[in-house]
Deep mutational scan, measured.
Amino acid sequence: FDIYVVTADYLPLGAEQDAITLREGQYVEVLDAAHPLRWLVRTKPTKSSPSRQGWVSPAYLDRRL
């Protein structure tokens, strides 16, 4: 999967189903980028939180090589 970094805090609107909150600087794996406005991502697990999966706007993501 492609690795992206979150460029700004992402707080989903209440109406968005299956969306997750992301923090600036967080790394995520993009699982599904087929839709231009919503990408399915999975967060990297940390010592304090397990990995999470949900939909985010790709405008908040920047690809890492």
Rank of each mutant, 00 (worst) to 15 (best):
F1R: 09
F1Y: 14
F1V: 08
D2A: 13
D2V: 11
D2G: 11
I3M: 08
I3T: 08
Y4Q: 02
V5R: 11
V5P: 01
V5Y: 13
V6R: 00
T7Y: 03
T7M: 09
T7L: 12
T7E: 02
T7V: 14
A8P: 02
A8Y: 07
A8L: 08
A8C: 11
D9K: 05
Y10G: 04
Y10K: 03
L11F: 15
L11R: 11
L11S: 12
L11M: 12
L11E: 14
L11C: 14
L11V: 15
P12M: 04
L13W: 09
L13P: 12
L13C: 13
G14W: 12
G14D: 15
G14R: 10
G14C: 14
G14N: 12
A15K: 11
A15Y: 13
A15R: 10
A15S: 15
A15C: 15
E16K: 06
E16P: 08
E16W: 09
Q17V: 14
Q17P: 13
Q17H: 13
D18L: 06
D18I: 04
D18R: 05
A19K: 07
A19M: 09
A19D: 09
A19H: 13
I20V: 06
I20D: 03
I20H: 03
T21E: 14
L22V: 05
L22Q: 01
L22Y: 01
R23F: 14
E24D: 04
E24T: 12
E24M: 14
E24A: 15
E24S: 11
E24F: 11
G25R: 02
G25P: 00
G25A: 02
Q26K: 02
Q26I: 05
Q26E: 15
Q26L: 04
Q26C: 07
Y27M: 11
Y27C: 11
Y27Q: 08
Y27P: 04
Y27D: 04
V28T: 01
V28Q: 00
E29C: 12
E29W: 15
E29F: 12
V30K: 01
V30T: 01
L31V: 07
L31A: 01
D32T: 04
D32K: 04
A33P: 07
A33I: 05
A33M: 14
A33N: 13
A33H: 08
A33E: 05
A34Q: 13
A34N: 13
A34H: 13
H35S: 15
H35L: 07
H35V: 03
P36K: 08
P36T: 07
L37G: 13
L37S: 11
L37Q: 10
L37W: 08
R38H: 07
R38C: 14
W39Y: 03
W39H: 01
L40H: 04
L40W: 09
L40N: 02
L40Y: 09
V41L: 01
V41T: 01
V41G: 00
R42I: 04
T43Q: 02
T43I: 08
T43C: 06
T43E: 03
K44G: 06
P45N: 07
T46D: 11
T46V: 05
T46N: 08
K47G: 13
K47L: 13
K47N: 13
K47A: 14
S48K: 10
S48N: 14
S49C: 14
S49W: 09
S49Y: 10
S49R: 09
S49G: 09
S49H: 12
P50D: 08
P50Q: 07
S51V: 10
S51Y: 07
S51G: 09
S51Q: 08
R52S: 10
R52V: 15
R52P: 02
R52Y: 12
Q53C: 12
Q53H: 07
Q53W: 08
Q53E: 13
Q53K: 09
Q53S: 10
Q53V: 14
G54T: 04
G54Q: 03
G54Y: 09
W55I: 03
W55N: 03
W55G: 01
W55F: 09
W55E: 02
S57V: 04
S57A: 06
S57P: 15
S57W: 03
P58W: 02
P58Y: 02
P58Q: 03
P58R: 04
P58N: 04
A59P: 02
A59K: 11
A59L: 14
A59C: 11
Y60C: 06
Y60A: 05
Y60E: 02
Y60V: 10
L61C: 01
L61R: 00
L61T: 01
D62R: 14
D62S: 15
D62W: 06
D62K: 15
R63K: 15
R63Y: 13
R63H: 12
R63G: 09
R64P: 15
R64D: 13
L65G: 14
L65A: 14
